[in-house]
């Protein structure tokens, strides 16, 4: 689920390590070249309205960059995404700590959070139009709420999994509830919080795209829908690629952070 790239397997005995390593890097490139040329050949022979070969996608890409359209759309998407995700972190972590500190409250609240979390966001859009209108705040809400739920439930798991011996020591030294949270529970929960951030980031990327496609046509999602309406397949593919790249960067960064944090924890304990 988490690692987007598949971990390379150990080379089998027949191959030497060096040649296997080389193949591992060469083969994806070879396959990419084959797929792109097949796509080019098929694309050239098909209705240009429906199918854009890579050469036209590259052309559309440079066109969109020259007109500044792509940069503006990307900036809109990234800034909304950052604000929504930051809000989700700011609310999600404290809520998660609260739910762990007051387990009864957490247990009562979690079915509702779970219910919201498992409702597909596209169907909430009509409600968001009624609540927030078709503007920035509605798009923020689509990012914020779902991402926040992922972060808070993960934080709750982390705080609940705190080491009992450390809690015992802190308690015997008379630590207050807030000191306990700050010095014992939160540091111990960091790996969980980071994995919550990763799930939250996935949700946030989907949320920003839904908001831009269904609520207010702006940013990369808006670019995608407007080019779809005029059958500009090449422009659509450009928007999809940039969205995928943003998602990959964000999730890979959090994956790396997660590995870092969990290995640090393993060394420390």
């Amino acid at each position: 689920m988490s690692s987007t790239a598949i971990k390379p397997a150990r080379p089998s005995g027949a191959m030497t390590v060096a040649s296997a390593l080389r193949l591992q890097h060469v083969l994806p490139v070879v396959s990419l070249v084959v797929v792109l040329s097949l796509w080019e050949v098929v694309g050239q022979s098909m209705n240009p309205l429906l199918f854009a070969p890579p050469s036209r996608v590259v052309g559309a890409f440079s066109g969109l960059i020259k007109s500044g359209e792509l940069l503006a759309a990307t900036l809109t998407t990234v800034s909304t995404l950052s604000v929504g995700f930051a809000l989700a972190i700011l609310v999600g972590i404290p809520l998660g700590v609260l739910m762990a500190q007051f387990p009864r409250f957490g247990e009562l609240l979690s079915p509702y959070l779970y219910g919201i979390f498992s409702t597909p966001r596209v169907v909430i859009v009509p409600l968001i139009i009624v609540w927030f209108g078709v503007g920035y705040s509605g798009r923020l809400f689509l990012i914020f709420l779902w991402s926040m739920i992922a972060i808070s439930t993960s934080t709750t798991d982390g705080v609940r999994n705190a080491r009992p011996d450390l809690i015992e020591v802190a308690r015997s030294y008379g630590a207050s509830r807030i000191e306990m949270v700050r010095h014992v529970l939160l540091p111990g929960a960091v790996p969980f919080v980071v994995s919550g951030l990763r799930i939250g980031a996935e949700r946030a990327v989907v949320g920003v795209v839904i908001g831009e496609m269904f609520l207010q046509l702006t940013g990369l999602g808006g670019l995608l829908v407007t080019s779809a309406k005029s059958f500009q397949t090449a422009e659509m593919l450009c928007a999809v690629v940039v969205i995928a790249v943003i998602g990959t960067i964000l999730i890979t960064a959090l994956d790396l952070l997660e590995q870092q944090v969990s290995s640090w924890k393993r060394r420390a304990t």
């Binding site: 987007t4 083969l27 429906l50 596209v122 659509m236 928007a239 995928a244």
Partner: peptide
Amino acid sequence: QWTLSPYFSALFVTPTVALVPLVLVW
């Protein structure tokens, strides 16, 4: 694994919503 899995990884990080307009056109 080396020739196919990159495409699945790419599919995995791309939000499905963003693919819907393409699917509709095709």
